[in-house]
Design a binder for these strands. Structure first.
Lengths: 187, 187
DNA sequence: TTTTGTGAAAATCTTCACAGCG
DNA sequence: CGCTGTGAAGATTTTCACAAAA
């Protein structure tokens, strides 16, 4: 089983087989007639395209429940995300161990960011603090923010923000259920 | 400022103005020429379409870091999500207070689900336990699962699952940064 | 004149159909 | 044969252009 057909991939992912072939062709992954696609090729090429082959250094700011969960979240390591520092302003949390990390005081953030040339920050602070922290991070040279606070951050155009929109996800789920006629609260 | 134009909404959301008009028309929100759309209409109608006007009862299963964060996440209440029960199998956690909730033992889940006729479950258990818990929830009559474990759950076709794909979100952010030429790790 | 609402045009995305290759 | 690769057809989405309304 070192080869896989577009039809099989299509079945697993739940899309049309032609689509799979077109997409793989678009990222220059070639298959062989009669045989299919070499699984090694698919995996390595796809990883490359998605940027998972390089190591991705990042800092995590905010070690509340959500921050702690993220620091321990399984699978980030597999995606190449390496947290080179985990920070919180709350001195009660500083020194605590979270997964593999020890919480550092915010004061250390500047030097860690500079030493490791970190460009990416995971933001898991309370909503009211998010914009301020983001501004500060940007001034430190951060140019990518993975934002978990439910607020739209204002950043310069050269900074990329990805909002993890839990509220939106919930709305979509609710809508899907309702469109199937499921009542979510007893009348 | 009780009216808003499609052009203004388009600017805020970052899409074409015609698109805004088409979409609003699709959900039966009418505007008035020269004036625009009545903001009250837009908000109330849109809330209705998204199912945010009804109360949405749900249970939360799993009170680790992520579960705790979710139980406290601001904004769910505004979206109409009401957690009627918060559960964990770990007796060390049972009885603990998380935000407004008290952690209940899994044994109580069955009766709470039945009494409140809960159809929606938020799943925040360790990856290895997710499928088992999901199976059990479905057998209790749950028909919507908001899954935070990084695993594709196998459920009957009448059950709706929404995966909160943190890994995917990260991959997208990394890809965006790389396409802008940002190196995320020093060489 | 400004802004909605919408049919028509343009662009894009998806599927079909089949040549080519092993 | 079975499966890839791809041009053409089909479907859908987005944009354009303009009539109608206040």
């Amino acid at each position: 089983m070192t080869f896989v057909s577009s039809a099989h991939l299509a079945g697993v992912v739940g899309v049309d087989a032609t689509m799979v072939r077109k997409d793989l062709a678009a990222v220059a992954i070639a298959g062989r007639p009669k045989v299919g696609y070499f699984i090694g090729d698919v995996l390595s090429q796809l990883s490359g395209v998605l940027g998972l082959t390089d190591r991705n250094d990042a800092i995590l700011v905010g070690c509340g429940d959500l921050g702690s969960a993220l620091a321990r979240y399984p699978g980030f390591a597999r995606l190449g995300l390496r947290l080179v520092g985990v920070f919180d302003t709350d001195y009660a949390k500083v020194g605590r161990t979270i997964g593999e990390h020890i919480v550092l005081p915010m004061e250390k953030c500047k030097s860690v960011t500079r030493i490791f040339r970190v460009k990416l920050a995971v933001l898991a602070v309370p909503t009211r603090a998010a914009q301020n922290v983001a501004d500060w991070l940007v001034s430190q040279g951060i140019c990518g923010i993975w934002n978990f606070a439910p607020v739209d951050l204002r950043v310069p155009p050269d900074v990329v923000v990805r909002n993890e929109n839990l509220a939106l996800g919930l709305a979509q789920l609710l809508h899907q259920l309702r469109s199937r006629g499921v009542a979510l609260a007893p009348s």
